[in-house]
Amino acid sequence: MHGSASSLSASVSSWLLVLLCAVSGAYCLRRVRGWGGAAAGEAVMGFGMALMAVPLGDGGAWRAPVLGAVFCVAAVHALWLLRGGAHHAHHLVGSLAMVYMAAAAGAGGHGQAHGQGAGLPLLTGALLLYYAGYVVLGGTQLITAAGPVPAAGPGPAAGPRPAPVHATSTELVRACRLAMGMGMLAMLLSM
């Protein structure tokens, strides 16, 4: 009974990760017209992460080599975009991390979920530190982007409440990047 509950929990978390990454990829795909190459790279990353997180059981033997090839191309694309700014270095690290996880999944045998496999502990640890820092930094930037939150008064007599703040495009981009960073962190933790 305990084994099936653990398996169900892993399956639910896998599908939640798939959903998170697919929604992020779809939002980035929607931004491609306005942002160009950077948004396209983020869309590929989001959909690739979603595909890698799908719990296929033993039917996913094709997944590691295909994703490895896709993310090798994405790494070359990020390297090309790197000449336009340092932000693209993160895309390069992400693409190479996905290549690494796909290779580890392929080396670890069939049926490995989330890129689980026989990875190199030192490289996995370095990537975990990078993405933990990225998520913490991204989260603090997202929180501080809206400015300070006004203190609440003692009750309804304190006056009218401010209108709700709607997320701007920049905040949505940050939230999308943060979501994909958390997805990367989750996949690396499962290695």
Rank of each mutant, 00 (worst) to 15 (best):
M101S: 00
M101H: 00
M101F: 00
A102D: 01
A104P: 02
A104V: 02
A104C: 08
A104E: 01
A105R: 03
A107T: 02
G108I: 02
G108W: 01
G108K: 04
G108A: 05
G109M: 05
H110S: 06
G111R: 10
Q112A: 05
A113M: 11
H114Q: 06
Q116D: 02
Q116L: 11
Q116C: 06
Q116F: 05
G117Y: 04
G117S: 04
A118T: 13
L120E: 08
L120I: 06
P121F: 08
T124D: 05
T124R: 11
G125E: 05
A126R: 06
A126L: 15
A126G: 09
L127F: 11
L128W: 08
L128P: 05
L129R: 12
L129M: 13
Y130A: 06
Y131L: 12
Y131K: 13
Y131S: 06
Y131N: 02
A132V: 12
A132M: 13
V136R: 09
L137N: 12
L137Y: 13
G138D: 12
G138L: 10
T140R: 14
T140Y: 11
T140A: 13
T140V: 10
Q141H: 07
L142S: 10
L142Y: 12
L142Q: 06
I143N: 00
I143L: 15
T144S: 14
T144G: 09
T144R: 15
A145D: 13
A146Y: 12
A146P: 04
A146S: 12
G147D: 13
P148F: 14
P148T: 11
P150E: 15
P150C: 13
P150Y: 14
A151C: 07
A151D: 10
A152I: 13
G153R: 08
G153N: 08
G153H: 09
P154G: 15
P154C: 08
G155Y: 12
G155Q: 09
P156N: 06
A157Y: 11
A158Y: 08
G159I: 09
G159R: 08
P160C: 07
P160V: 07
R161W: 12
R161G: 03
R161M: 12
P162K: 12
A163R: 14
A163K: 13
A163V: 09
A163T: 03
A163P: 06
P164R: 13
V165R: 13
H166F: 03
H166A: 06
H166M: 01
H166C: 00
A167S: 09
A167I: 00
A167W: 11
T168P: 00
L172Q: 04
V173S: 05
R174W: 10
R174T: 01
R174E: 03
A175S: 07
C176F: 07
R177Q: 11
L178Q: 04
A179V: 05
A179Q: 04
G181A: 11
G181P: 06
M182L: 08
M182I: 04
